[in-house]
Write a protein that binds this DNA or RNA. Structure first.
Lengths: 338, 338
DNA sequence: TTGTATGCGTTATCAC
DNA sequence: GTGATAACGCATACAA
């Protein structure tokens, strides 16, 4: 554990500088010398101390990925995609999971900064804005994912939430539904607000009156799906169909519908934003807006690596905001109302 | 970005040693001095360089968590539990996802070692045995999770797979099923072998003949579930019930059953190992062996931290092998055969 | 209580 | 082609 380049060098009868050159595959070293060194390295099972190296070169060859909930499919798939690309480029990735807790997010961002991580891909809680702004001013490399932060100039990758939601609700309208409720997300977030806007636009375009009591705001978690579903079903204005803005809240809704014996699509229509994470064969099959999740991760990573490779890039350049389109998968959770 | 303790020290009119003391909250520093230093730290937005610190103290305050598939619920929940505990103890955790690829696993282990990570929690692919052995010999702190590696003395946390599987299959037998097939996992893995053994023991105890053609070996992925389900259903010895050894392969099975129009539990009984990852309300509701997943993660982390805190612990001590019991959740995927 | 000097294990800039 | 040697930014033993 205490063996370093010096030890290897002595045993090989060279200087530590030479060992360093061999290990970094620099050209200017004689073949025999290289061989000799590598032999000793093998013998001693020597592995360079990445910490010391990082300190010397002021680069860590590592990026951080800060996600809000690793248990969610969206996050997991993004993670996988980012990792895949990072590994190709020879980077390590540190995954930080904050469970939508801004305090945890801040702690992680600080740790990453303190550890002189080369770059960060961040799915923001959209809370620690001033700190993120500071990081950007220090010219740290950051790419936002899934959500924007207004007032901040930063490369971002996300989907066109508004259009996705619009299409889902329009589909309900076209199917003949009129009293359409939504279990919306957190208004402060990009995903929450934009999906709500899509809902509203679809209704307005169809000249359908928008009822406040049919718009419920949750926090993207299962619990709020349950709570809000109850409210909707027990209200005086019971909806014919419900559009949920993410999978977790859909789960909550399904739970309640099952409990109350309300059948999909016979008694109620259901459409959701987000990929489905359960088997295709499970019933009821829910019509959904699908995001190109893996793609999002890959593009974000590519954006980040482009920055990292461009030594004299600076954050005051115009940021890239990349919007990807969603798909709409029609299944069996609605019916045609004649 | 180029500001360090020296800079802070000069601006505060003290030495860098004093700044260091203040930042580490050491007691022996005057109140006013501390105040003065902290003021400058704030002003300059100074954050200590964790790399340099790690190099100096030869500790990184970081543990690595190597999992096989972050998309799987088991992994995700374990990850969350480990992270939770780590954050409490003031440790950072690096998550490494290898997709069951031994090469990736090796690469990650090397990176972690090179980065002088304090400890590792490893869900092993059970392949890179010699390298892991070497790490252990170098007295690196490692805790295995979910799977054992034979011939290696290392703390491990996993469930009693054999009993869990036994109970599931016995339940089928008690329900009157006789021709019971299994979609088993990778034989080389602890989880694969032990769950198979539970299946066999249950049948043997009931004096039910074991047919080779009713035992199919998959790789724990959805694809093999699909393939093997087809084989079972199209074989000449069609089973009355199937026990799948994990969720992914169950998904494959469900897909095929749905495709072929075979109804659960009317036409076939189904029981699976592993937690269900889809809503309780979805049909069919599958009877399953549930692992105390979160608990597993927490215990593994506790074991690791115990080692880390015990400076003179050494790997040649007798390892702790901790087996946790599973639960058995009876739902609606089987029926009583009279 | 505070400062000085040295070490941590590399890389990089010089010489030779 | 190879070897000293000075950074890199912090911690720490020892002095003061």
């Amino acid at each position: 554990m205490k063996i370093n380049m010096q030890v290897v060098a002595e045993k090989a009868g060279v200087s530590s500088a030479t060992v360093s050159r061999v290990l970094r595959r620099l050209p200017n070293v004689r073949k025999e010398t290289r061989k000799k060194v590598l032999k000793v390295v093998k013998e001693l099972n020597y592995e360079v101390n990445a910490i010391a190296r990082s300190l010397a070169v002021r680069e860590t060859n590592t990026i951080g990925l800060v996600v809000t909930d690793i248990r969610g499919r969206f996050n997991a798939v993004v993670t996988e995609a980012v990792e895949e690309l990072a590994i190709q480029r020879g980077y390590n990735v540190i995954i930080c999971n904050n469970m939508e807790d801004p305090n945890k997010e801040l702690k992680y961002l600080k740790t990453l900064a303190s550890n002189r991580i080369d770059g960060i891909i961040l799915m923001p809680t959209q809370k620690n804005i001033s700190y993120i702004k500071r990081l950007l001013e220090e010219n740290r490399k950051i790419v936002l994912i899934d959500r924007l932060i207004k007032g901040i100039n930063c490369d971002s990758v996300l989907v066109d939430n508004e259009t996705g939601a619009y299409r889902a609700v329009k589909f309900l309208i076209d199917s003949g539904y009129r009293k359409i409720a939504t279990i919306a997300g957190i208004k402060r977030t990009t995903t929450g607000l934009e999906r709500l806007n899509g809902y509203i636009r679809a209704l307005e375009e169809a000249n359908i009156k928008i009822y406040d009591e049919l718009i419920k705001f949750g926090d993207f978690q299962v619990g709020s799906g349950i709570k809000l579903a109850k409210e909707l079903l027990r209200g005086k204005n019971v909806p014919e169909a419900i559009f949920t803005s993410n999978i977790q809240m859909l789960r909550g809704l399904l739970f309640i519908l099952d409990e109350e014996g309300i059948k999909i699509p016979d008694d109620i229509g259901v459409v959701t934003f987000d990929d489905i994470e359960w088997p295709e064969s499970m019933l009821p099959k829910i019509t959904a807006v699908r995001q190109p999740v893996s793609h999002i991760g890959r593009i974000a990573a590519e954006l980040l690596f482009k920055k990292l490779n461009n030594k004299n890039s600076h954050n005051n350049e115009k940021p890239n905001i990349i919007r990807l389109e969603t798909d709409f998968i029609i299944r069996d959770s609605t019916k045609k109302l004649v």
